[in-house]
Design a protein around this nucleic acid. Structure first.
Lengths: 202, 202, 202, 202
DNA sequence: AATGAATGAGTCTTCATTCAT
DNA sequence: AATGAATGAAGACTCATTCAT
């Protein structure tokens, strides 16, 4: 749904999106009705359909925006860093921190991955992330600092670790994101096969 | 719902469970109606409510059984193995292979983890699994063959990697489970911090 | 929707159909809601969807049944009559009388013809009716008792006249169906080009 | 709704009407929303309600205008023709040709006749048309050139034939309007009971 | 144990109309 | 005259669950 929105319109839409994120994350996509959302925002039911053509569309928009945002975060952190191993490290930490700050979105992405209706919508974004990581890994391999293995598998594994540990330690147990980021990064470095001595460029 | 079931009754119930698993895995829990299930099995609606008090109960039963089954598999593989590092290795491989053989159930468990209604049902089983792994890890640490770190975090990370790589490489791309198990195990060994020289008992 | 119906089920369905016909005829298809129908019959909303998969399906079923019934009526009246001109005459009268007795259905058929969603559903039945008439007309032409003209056009014209005059004189003004049938038949005979002298077989 | 309209206002209104006619004819009255219309014309919703107080009013205005236009056409064709039988003939042909040129409007009139909300709006106009025809028919009867029968019924029958054959042969099958007009006229002459010898004034 | 039938609250969505600007 | 935004009643349809038989 493409619509020219006024200032006020944009605010309304943002309001709806933000409330929907919270509601979906807390109660689940299927369990949250459009009525819940509009009631929560305090507007009539029609308003929802003025801004979104369906509940599904809203959700997909949320997914897309999230993924874009997360990637932006990663790229911002990495920009200008030359060492591919440092880039991997920073990328992992960025992911953990983004997950920590956007726990609702992490939940939604996780849900969407497992829901056939939305899997494809998430897939693309995830692929992009994995491609990013793969580039750095390949560079590391070429430099002889990472033992040669399937870079995609490694990238996927790292993403999974970041996601899982964030969920348990940050989302559920409220531990310090920086510490969790350390743990994740360390596990991943090991998983990639960088022994400590590899870490410095030859 | 506890009921004394005749032979035939048990078969009926198994029929329902097995169809439900397929349906839930393929179309999602919310999208699969009780009507779909009984129609699929070719029985009346009353039958369903004779064996299960609700759709939710059925799903939880599926989750429980699955987790129990997976654990059994892991324990069978490990039984009698003395070396904790070998137990970890075998446990990881068992997980990957169980996931591979029970892709529908893996999906359902994954879904349930992200659904507030079912999260708690999965939690317990996952905790047990993690406790198992934790024991071996702690032993490994005590023996000085794994650098000391939070064993639970390590266990969780391993589970995540197993799950993720199984999904992508086996469920989606149909690769050889044994090969995937190797990849997962290798990543995890590295993540745990066992350098190659650690692998043999001192 | 195919379903094995019990005695009771068949009665329920008939009840719904019969009420729906009245409601649609009186208030229009679009203006009559499923809620109106189930309320009118005094059952829950789900009942409707137990018997019909949609409001549209119900309507189409009504159309089909009507057309079949009307045709049956025509054929019953004509059976065994040898003279094609007599068959035409009897066919026209049967149509008028059926319309008279099933005014609600006549209305619905008329409505459906003009509604793109249903036009095709009516089309087929109308074609059959026209084909029937065309056969008799062609025979009449071959016998030299009807001047040669496009038989289909003639059939269509007769149907239109029957419909229109029934509507105005019977449905709106409650005149005697037999008299109206006479009028229609006479107009049509003339329209076909049977001058009085043609009427007897040579 | 009476409003003093500027030049531009009149154009806007005409634009709306003309788009609405197409939309209603193509998709049906109920299926075409006010939003469809204003979007189609490319204006805001307020505009619609500036010119029409409701969707219904717009439709009724369309019906009225159409009927007036059709009658004008008939009268123009007939003007100055003395022979009542010729007037009938010309009237029929005018109807067919108007229908042919204004297929959208024919559809809408046909729809409206069968919709209780609009039936009354069409009724009046149809009555006028029938009255016109009735006059000529009565004259024909008085002159002894048409056998004496209910002139109104005859008029209605003729209208029905014109409508029906136009729909099938022109609207659906794109045949030559002049040819169809011939067919209709011939059928009606026969229906009225003018044998060929009647056609000339005594 | 089992079936077909029924319930009715709840879901998403549409749309004529109105309002503030 | 005109717009974008908002309203909210109403619509079609779903579905977990229960009931009569």
């Amino acid at each position: 749904m493409q619509r020219q929105l006024t200032q006020r319109g944009q605010e309304r839409k943002a309001q709806l999106v933000s409330f929907a994120i919270k509601a979906f994350a807390q109660n689940g996509y299927h369990t949250t009705s459009v009525a819940d959302i509009v009631d929560g925002v305090g507007v009539g039911k029609g308003v929802f359909y003025w801004y979104f053509s369906s509940k599904e569309e809203l959700f997909i928009e949320i997914l897309r925006t999230s993924q874009r945002d997360m990637r932006r975060r990663q790229q911002r952190e990495i920009r200008g860093v030359e060492d591919p191993l440092d880039r991997i490290d920073l990328g992992i930490r960025a992911a953990v921190l983004w997950f920590a700050e956007n726990d609702d979105l992490r939940r939604l992405l996780e849900f969407a991955r497992n829901e056939s209706t939305f899997a494809s919508a998430v897939h693309h974004g995830q692929k992009v992330l994995v491609e990013d990581a793969r580039t750095h890994i390949e560079e590391g391999i070429k430099e002889g600092r990472i033992p040669p293995r399937d870079p995609e598998a490694l990238a996927l594994a790292m993403l999974a670790v970041a996601n899982q540990l964030t969920q348990v330690y940050i989302s559920e147990r409220n531990e310090d994101p920086e510490v969790v980021a350390d743990t994740v990064a360390e596990f991943c470095r090991g998983g990639l096969g960088m022994s400590p001595e590899f870490r410095q460029r030859p």
